[in-house]
Simulated scan of single mutants.
Amino acid sequence: MSYINFKGTVKKINLKSAEETEITISIPASELDGQYNTLQSMLELKVIGGLDSQIVTYKVLKNARTGKPITKYTVDDGGVVSVAKPEGEQLSMDLGLPPEKVEVKADPEQIDLEIIQDFILSGLAPRFDDMQYDFLEITERLAGGDTYLKIAADIGMGVGVFVVMVDEYRKRVAPMAAKWDEWRKGQVNTVPPKDGEPVNSQEEEQQNDGQPEEQGGANTDSSEQTEVNESEEDNKPEDDSNPATDTDSETAVDKDELEEYILKVRPNFDDIPVDFPTLLQQRREEGKTWMQIAKSIGLTSGQITTKWTAYKKMVAKQMRNGGAA
């Protein structure tokens, strides 16, 4: 069975007839590295697929007079997002007065799906009483390559209902994810330097202000920031030179066959110092989630998901090469 995976942009939708709709998708060349021949072999063949928008649109209730959001959020030092009680409501409670009636409007806001996924994978996203499913596990599986169809079947739900449920959860946590993302980005400027390492401070930026940067870029990806700020690391791709993330290693083999190969051959790679064959066996035999496994080996769920995806790509490449890495 042929399979490819890619990210692209929907450019045109053409309703050719009542029975046929033509969709044009623009795909960056890098997304098809190592997959073009597979795509070419699918020409004029029937395929099944789905489109998952990388932008989430949600509604924000705002004061119609001031334009400010009705619900505000605060983030503590650990990245936990909480709802802040509105100032007017708090004042009314303190004075024993009835709350002021505010005219409300709902404005659409947009956020990258990647930010919401990072927020969920951080383990800080909330649960809701009317949505009892494990959305952390669901997000881990989607990030690991499982399809909506497979996950829906595993939990005994129709894929259409499942997709709507996941979308609703993402919209609910979207404003909290946006606030968490602001906090996460702000941590870059508060990381204390280690002994012997350059100080990445506002003073240093002022000293360098107006000076041309050397070709090759400035210190926008310092090691001390990566080591201390796990959330920032989760949202950052691996080194471009790392073969573990080369797109020509994108898996084109069946997921079950891939995992059976991992458990039988137990491949390992110097670029990925994690014993995934043992962890996969532990996940199957003990029924543990990747979140639980990540904690047991000192990683965040975002980190282990990134490494697991890169590892599977390298294993798939090894399988296609007949066992050679």
Rank of each mutant, 00 (worst) to 15 (best):
Q90L: 09
D94Q: 10
K105N: 08
T71W: 01
K105S: 11
K68G: 05
D77F: 04
N63F: 01
E109T: 11
V83N: 03
D107Y: 14
G78F: 05
G79H: 05
E89Q: 12
L97I: 10
K105T: 15
K72Y: 09
G79M: 06
E89D: 12
N63E: 05
G78P: 03
I111S: 01
D77T: 13
P99L: 12
G78R: 02
K101Q: 11
T66Y: 04
V102P: 02
A64D: 13
G88N: 12
D94K: 03
N63Y: 00
G79T: 10
V81W: 03
V80C: 03
T74K: 05
G79E: 12
I70R: 05
P86T: 04
L61Y: 15
V80T: 13
K105H: 02
E103I: 02
P99I: 14
V81H: 02
E89V: 15
V104G: 01
T66G: 07
K68N: 14
K62P: 00
E109C: 05
P86S: 06
P86W: 02
G79I: 10
D76Q: 07
T74N: 10
S92E: 13
A106K: 09
E89Y: 05
Q90P: 00
V80G: 02
P98M: 09
N63A: 09
L95D: 14
V104H: 00
P98E: 15
Q110P: 07
E87K: 04
P98N: 11
E87F: 10
V81N: 03
G88K: 05
V75H: 01
K72R: 10
R65Y: 02
P69G: 06
V75G: 01
L91T: 13
K72C: 05
E109S: 10
L97T: 05
D94W: 05
D77K: 06
E87I: 10
K62R: 10
M93G: 06
K72W: 11
S92V: 07
T74D: 15
N63I: 04
G78S: 12
E100M: 01
